[in-house]
Amino acid sequence: MITNEKVWRPDNLHDAWILSSKLSDQCCFVSGGTWLRTQWEAGTKEMAPHLISLDKVPEVKEDISLKGQLGQEEVVIGASTTLAEMITNPTLNEKAPVLVKACKNIAGPSIRNQGTIGGNILSCVGDAIPALIVLNAKLMWFNGDELVYQSIEEWLLNQDEVRDILVSIHIPTDKSKGEHYEFAFYTKVGRRESFIPSLVTVAGTGCYRKGEGIFSHVSLSVGGGNVVPIRLPNTEVKIINNEYSSELLYNVLRQVQQDYKPIDDAFGSAAYKRKVAGNLIVSELYRIGGSNHALE
């Protein structure tokens, strides 16, 4: 049993930031706390002498809402929104179903009642991240002076040590994709049906013009295990403005396996994970385009 003598419970963002500045590396922010407690008990992370709970900070508890003008709307999600709240939210189900699907695939119902989207992101390996990447999500941080935006993709490339407070997640909903069929997919592969860490997770969004068989606006992401999820821009290039064909599928399969660099672990080799990632993305493209085009 690991306990800590001080839990600070500031009631606003400024106070939380001042506390973290003063306590420096002796503190840690806590929201749901599920990921942190797991690490403390497993001995992979030491419990900080001071915990700063964000449960009374209204800014991070903002309800999921649609904001902005028509054509430039975005879904705003407070960082301490639980995964369960995200799954049942009507706005999110309408505007970002791929993210809802991702949340449904994280842990079990009881963890989702407590664990938050902010915590999932800050773990850097959370299963919601691939979905957020393909949705071009932005993170809003409080740095002590002001609120600043950063794309999740950019943050993942430079996330060494977080000092700022993650306030909210912003998902643009205007993609200007016209009337074409939009697709979104999210697939997680683990070692059993549910409540299992991911071996490989893929997510994708885009458009497919059925008449012409052409893909556009494609975004792809892959992650899983202890690997920080990445976007696959080189693979996207192989697909965008190209016609569905068996050659395209083979090109995509090869490119994913070149771009994705997972690591070996006790449950799966890097080569296996690369192959699974490639097969998952190709199977989704086949599902989207294969019904209109018999493979030659």
């Binding site: 706390g33 599920t34 407690r37 008990e41 369960a84 119902p109 009881s110 963890i111 009642n113 407590q114």
Partner: peptide, 12 residues
């Protein structure tokens, strides 16, 4: 709501 009491702290 179902919650894991091993992951829940007193203040929560």
């Amino acid at each position: 709501k179902p919650s894991n009491s091993c992951l829940t702290m007193a203040y929560q």
